[in-house]
Simulated scan of single mutants.
Amino acid sequence: MIIFIVPKNSGLKRCREIVAAEYPQTKQVVVRGEDIPSIVTRLLKEGKKVIGITGEDLFKEFLLNFKNSKLSILKKFIWEDDSAMFGKPCLCLLGPKEKKMEELPKNLKVCINKKYTKLAKRYLSLLEARGYTFEKFYLSGVTEESFNKGLADLVIEIVYSGKSAEEAGLRVYEKIFESDIVIIGTREKEESKALENFSLNDLLKKINEKISSSDEDSYTKKLVADPEILKRKLIEEAAEVITSKNKEELIWECSDLIYFLFVIMAKNGVTVEDIEKENERRDKK
């Protein structure tokens, strides 16, 4: 029997609902959402058949800490909630609502939710390149309260409804990472072997198949239906490519960027051959 690791966090209740509805025959183990990638990794090493479900933000943080991890996203569920400020949880930079970022001093104290140390570090490096310096400290909770008590000038925290941020006198300065729900694990050996020769043409073909499918939960279909989300993801991934610290991280981020680029290509009927022909034409000049 497959073991399904599910989160006990109240904010990830949707994960438990998905497992109950779609995977009722699995044995479920309930742990903290931020621990799920590590637990799945350990149980896989013990030879167990195991998968996990958690927030995409928590999985991304794990991958930034363990770049050689063999875990991958097996399936993604778009998080849609009209009561959420952005329709889903979003890691954000929060600042005093009566000011703009450019009105603040260049040397700032920032309180960071300790679940997101790597995501925050990567984002703040972009601001540091613009001349800002940060005194960082990390809390497990009450990050917004640190602003109220004068301990922090800025806060990096998950925003859902936005109510607690508003009550603390904060507003969203910038979105850092929008989170959906992901099922994580490792692919079967047969599938991994088939992926060894996976080409860019194969990727584009798979994206076209997703667009043409009847699966309304398809992440690719959602992107095609909402150009603004697709545009934001392209900008976000391009920034992550630029700020990559090493070869492994660069490979990971380039793969993300190519996926979103190929979604735009597929949407507009552009093929890999079209790109190759254009580059061949330029080479002859």
Rank of each mutant, 00 (worst) to 15 (best):
K76P: 01
A21K: 13
K106N: 05
Y219R: 07
L250W: 08
V40N: 02
K100A: 12
V110H: 04
M265G: 03
N208R: 14
G131W: 08
V241W: 05
M85N: 06
V40P: 01
L200Y: 11
I5L: 10
E240P: 00
D274P: 04
S38W: 09
E167L: 14
V155T: 00
G185T: 04
E188C: 04
S38M: 12
L154T: 02
L250R: 13
L63V: 10
S83L: 15
K210E: 15
G141S: 15
N208F: 01
K193H: 14
R122C: 05
E174G: 07
F260P: 02
E80L: 10
I235S: 12
L64M: 11
K285T: 11
E174F: 08
K277C: 01
E209W: 04
G169M: 01
E102I: 10
K193N: 15
I207V: 06
I3A: 03
D217M: 11
P89W: 06
D153I: 00
D57L: 07
V263C: 04
K189A: 15
V159I: 13
L261H: 06
W79E: 09
E56R: 12
K267W: 03
L234C: 08
T117D: 11
I36P: 00
N148F: 06
G55F: 00
E46T: 11
Y116T: 01
E128H: 06
V29A: 10
L44K: 09
K75Q: 13
F86W: 08
E135M: 11
N9E: 06
N113H: 15
K221H: 01
F198L: 09
K149R: 14
K210Y: 12
N113K: 12
N65L: 11
S164P: 03
E191R: 09
K76R: 15
T133Q: 09
C254K: 13
A129D: 12
L234I: 13
G52T: 02
S161H: 08
L58Y: 07
N197G: 10
S140R: 13
P96Q: 07
E17I: 09
F137H: 03
G141M: 08
F198A: 02
E248L: 10
K163Q: 12
K231G: 04
V40G: 06
K88S: 10
L63H: 05
I18E: 02
K247G: 01
K245W: 10
V159W: 03
G141E: 15
I242K: 15
K115Y: 09
P227Q: 04
F134G: 01
L234M: 11
E280S: 13
N201T: 11
V29Y: 10
I2S: 12
D283F: 15
G95E: 00
C92F: 00
V272C: 06
A238E: 09
E166V: 05
E17F: 02
L43K: 03
T220A: 05
K109E: 07
